[in-house]
Nucleic acid binder design. Structure first.
Lengths: 128, 128
DNA sequence: GCTTGACCTGGAGCGCACTCGAAGGAGCAG
DNA sequence: CTGCTCCTTCGAGTGCGCTCCAGGTCAAGC
């Protein structure tokens, strides 16, 4: 894969160019993205893979600061794998807890939907 | 259940007194909460039940403005049940889609956790 | 040579959902 | 009477995560 422009990369990962620049400035990427002769960013396959991981972490609710922390650990090189693992596992637990909570609340909402549906069906039967 | 103070209600539903006042001012409740002789809010069982529904909707990600819209429909009285149902069903779909997305991303993160775990196990075996 | 369009930077602005602060009142213990 | 706690209102402030804007550079096409 030849290097991509910021617009192409944004399209590919489902973010906007603004967000990609913001992530880079905020330390969420492993290193500054390479530049073309004219100073435009060029994203290679490794950049894209990392950004995809970042979007997965963000999409599951990991705060920006924690993604930055994870990026710092990876940047620091090998030797801190336990710490990275701990961060990922903690996040996993948080996500599972939130999923369970949402599912529980959704169950109650479903129940309410059932009640409304029934009531409306009875009404239309009465009208028939 | 005798009427509760704002602090008791907040405790019961897992919000803060500030948030309860904010919800009321913002039109998320069905009507202004009753007051004691000294002007303090007094929440009855119906208030608490409604607030619990609001927290379920919020906890599943329904925006404040949509909760307000739902409250408006309920306030308007019977005759708009289809519209309420439509709102709830639309929310249900949104939540299900988001759950699926989060689960997919979590799967990829789990995979990464597996890889790290394996690598660390191999390393500790090598060290032994 | 001029225009167009994609990109650059730094910094301001925004939407959401609270959260807090200031100033004040009522009720009760000592 | 004093002090304490809990409540009141109004409006400002906060944190997060973008999102947008102004002003500028550069390469390509006409």
């Amino acid at each position: 894969m030849s290097p991509l422009t910021i617009a192409e990369t944004a399209e590919l990962v489902g973010l906007t160019p603004d967000t990609l620049r913001y992530y880079e400035k905020d330390g969420l990427l492993l290193r500054p993205v390479a530049r073309s002769a004219s100073g435009h960013r060029r994203y290679d396959a490794a950049d894209v893979r990392w950004i995809e991981l970042v979007t997965r972490l963000r999409a599951t609710g990991l705060p920006i600061r924690d993604v930055r922390r994870y990026a710092e650990l990876v940047r620091a090189g090998s030797g801190n794998e336990e710490e990275r693992l701990e961060l990922l596992r903690a996040h996993r637990s948080t996500v599972l807890a939130r999923l369970a909570e949402v599912q529980e609340h959704l169950g109650a909402i479903d129940h309410k939907i059932g009640i409304y549906t029934e009531a409306l069906e009875r009404r239309s039967e009465g009208a028939a």
